[in-house]
């Protein structure tokens, strides 16, 4: 069943010009979908638009048959979507624990169970829970950012380049964590530079260029596609 549907959306940062042109994308329940494409293709812009940070100028976005385009980010968050931005995605002067608490800001119920789950997923965060997020390494920060997003118990998780700037050993461990999160039933859209790795763990993939759909297919098919390989997967 489709959980999130982007339907011919055009959007941009200034009134005159659009970055996304007539873009469509679907995410099915339980899926991981990768979005790949060259720098400046509009991948981050797509996630921002889904999360309500940009308003689509045309087209619509649906979450489980409910139109969410035009809603404020915190409304969309309340409906079960979490978003991890590409950069500046932790509160540096807050401790790890406090970062996670902020993730649950809009929850009024008891979230200690969720926090335990996050700590189980990322044990290293529990060890350092009173350390300031600004002092962590890139990989650990990424874990804090994801943990913060998970505190909402989202049904849909939007990840913008979670492996950017990480050492190779951390890349695979982050990807393992993403698979673990997915296994708990969270549907995920992941934007990645490490396109090959991302496609390997995802069910389907979308190729974007200049703000438009170029191709979408099962991940295996994209990985096997020679042109995609040459243009976007680095050989």
């Amino acid at each position: 069943m489709t959980i999130l549907k982007v339907d011919s959306v055009s959007a941009g940062y200034v009134p005159e010009s659009n970055i996304l042109h007539d873009l469509s994308l679907e995410l099915n329940e339980g899926e991981i979908v990768s979005v790949i494409g060259p720098n400046g293709a509009g991948k981050s812009t797509l996630l921002k638009t889904i999360f309500g940070l940009l308003k689509p100028k045309s087209g619509k976005i649906q979450l489980k048959n409910e139109v969410i385009s035009g809603l404020k980010p915190f409304r969309i968050a309340q409906k079960g979507v979490s978003y991890v931005p590409q950069v500046n995605n932790v509160f540096p002067s807050l401790t790890i624990q406090e970062n996670l608490e902020m993730g649950a800001f809009i929850r009024s119920d008891d979230y200690s169970d969720t926090m335990e789950e996050v700590y189980t997923l990322f044990p290293v965060l529990k060890e350092r829970k009173n350390q300031k997020a600004g002092q962590l390494s890139g990989g650990q920060r990424q874990m804090v950012a994801m943990g913060r997003a998970l505190m909402l118990k989202p049904e849909v998780l939007l990840l913008d380049e979670p492996s950017a700037g990480l050492a190779p050993i951390f890349v695979s461990s982050i990807f393992d964590k993403i698979k673990e999160i997915n296994a708990t039933g969270v549907s995920i859209i992941i934007v990645e530079q490490n396109a090959k790795e991302a496609l390997k763990m995802s069910h389907r993939g979308y190729v974007l260029a200049m703000g438009q759909n170029v191709l979408d297919d099962k991940s295996d098919a994209l990985l096997a596609n020679e042109e995609v390989g040459r243009l976007y997967l680095g050989g």
Partner: peptide, 23 residues
């Protein structure tokens, strides 16, 4: 307090505070 922490979070990074759902 929750509000106090949210204030520090907003001071740290207003955009992320917005993304996190802080009003």
């Amino acid at each position: 307090t929750k509000m106090g922490k949210a204030m520090r979070a907003t001071a740290d990074n207003t955009d992320l505070a917005l993304v996190t759902g802080i009003d």
